[in-house]
Design a protein around this nucleic acid. Structure first.
Length: 397
DNA sequence: GTCCTGGATC
DNA sequence: GATCCAGGAC
């Protein structure tokens, strides 16, 4: 009947409690001790057999572990994998990353999404290089002060790279914990997040905290999946309250998300006589900051794509233009809006492009385009361009 | 609330 | 092909 999730031990710093806190738990409820020990043992055993073989698990280099954890924020393992390899070939050390140009770092991040991660990572690398002589701090509090390092990432680095017995609760771990302890509170509310965090804190063993934290996440991806969890083969099935209650698939509970609005935008494909493409660089803040894009922008209410194109192209670069043809439409979806992008081929009738509402304008050859960082949506838009045959060769010379 | 992309599902 | 969904930091 006792649910550890409902215990609210007085908040305390972990360091105040040496060793496993089993004595305290025992004094509260003898029956709750065994599950913790049993869960740890089973999970670690399962992990030794079934843990994924990932490159960042073959290294003890805190820098590499840090890179992997930042890449894994909001990102699947399979997606991050190739980026991890190329990023580390390119920036093998904290010093290499700290000394790189922002553009190189951004390019290495192209298509990985959430580009502020790349900016923060770069900034943090400089801090680590300058203030910490290239060594990452080892404790959660100091790690958390680095840009781009929040609670989860700090816990992951501290436990995996430095063997600290701290939890690292990401969305996967939250799912496992919510089911294991039948936490029915809405997990994206702070109260429930604290509850799960405190459960994780009690579970993490002093002996192998990094392995334990990773085991929790691997279990989440291998059998404690969001839909149709494979409870039959789960090593923790005997301990799982949700399994007992038949509520595994209903947990964790989330708030239902607001409907996502739709926004319309326009993009211009403009070529010069040599076949070079006009591209502009986005501002340093906001959506896709510092990435390159085609000229254009968001439509106003009741504005037609044609009107919007002429207006946004003028506002962004100061030129007067006319439409040549419709190149097509791109649909792309962001966290908080869906984008419908109308793409036109366009001709400049007056003026020379200036960086007015953008950081930079440039006529780019296809070779140069390959070296600039664009968002997925802009790549899609550029792919709509029916390149005039014959010009391509001259553009490359 | 604002940041992105890709995979699963219909 | 559209829609839903998963995944942390600020």
């Amino acid at each position: 009947m006792r649910n550890p999730a409902e215990n609210h031990p007085p908040p305390r710093r972990r360091s105040a409690v040496p060793g496993p806190r089993t004595a305290e738990m025992a004094s509260l409820d003898p029956s709750s001790v065994l599950p913790i020990l049993s869960i740890r043992r089973k999970l670690l055993l399962w992990y030794r057999k079934n843990g994924r073989d990932l490159p960042w698990r073959k290294t003890a280099d805190p820098y590499r572990i840090w890179i992997s954890e930042v890449m894994l924020q909001q990102t699947r393992v399979e997606t991050a994998l190739p980026y991890y390899r190329t990023f580390l070939r390119r920036f093998p050390t904290v010093q290499a990353l700290a000394g790189a140009s922002p553009d190189d770092v951004l390019k290495a991040w192209e298509n990985l999404g959430y580009y502020s991660r790349a900016r923060h990572l770069h900034e943090a690398a400089r801090i680590v290089a300058e203030r910490f002589a290239g060594r990452l701090p080892e404790n959660v509090e100091e790690l958390r002060k680095l840009p781009g390092v929040g609670g989860y990432t700090a816990g992951a680095i501290a436990s995996i790279a430095f063997g600290k017995a701290v939890p690292a609760v990401d969305g996967n771990a939250r799912r496992v914990l919510a089911r294991l302890f039948a936490v029915t509170a809405t997990v994206d509310r702070p109260a429930a997040a604290r509850q799960l965090e405190s459960l994780a804190e009690r579970l993490v063993p002093e002996s192998a905290p990094g392995a334990f934290n990773q085991a929790l996440m691997d279990l989440a991806s291998a059998c404690c999946t969001p839909r149709k969890p494979a409870c039959g083969v789960c090593p923790l099935r005997a301990n799982c309250r949700a399994r007992r209650d038949g509520t595994a698939e209903a947990l964790p509970r989330r708030m239902k998300r607001a409907r996502i609005p739709e926004r319309q935008a326009v993009s211009a494909i403009v070529r010069d006589r040599r076949g070079r493409l006009l591209v502009v660089r986005r501002p340093g803040k906001g959506l896709l900051s510092s990435l390159w894009k085609l000229p254009g922008g968001f439509l106003r209410e009741r504005e037609t794509p044609e009107e919007g194109l002429i207006r946004t192209f003028r506002e962004e670069t100061g030129v007067e233009s006319e439409l040549l043809s419709r190149a097509g439409t791109v649909h792309h979806s962001y966290t908080h809006f869906r984008l419908i992008l109308h793409v036109f081929t366009v001709r400049i009738v007056r003026g020379k492009p200036q960086p007015l509402l953008c950081r930079e304008v440039r006529w780019s050859t296809s070779e140069e385009l390959a070296s600039l960082a664009f968002s997925k949506a802009d790549r899609k838009a550029m792919d709509l361009d029916a390149f005039p045959p014959g010009l391509d060769k001259s553009a490359r010379r």
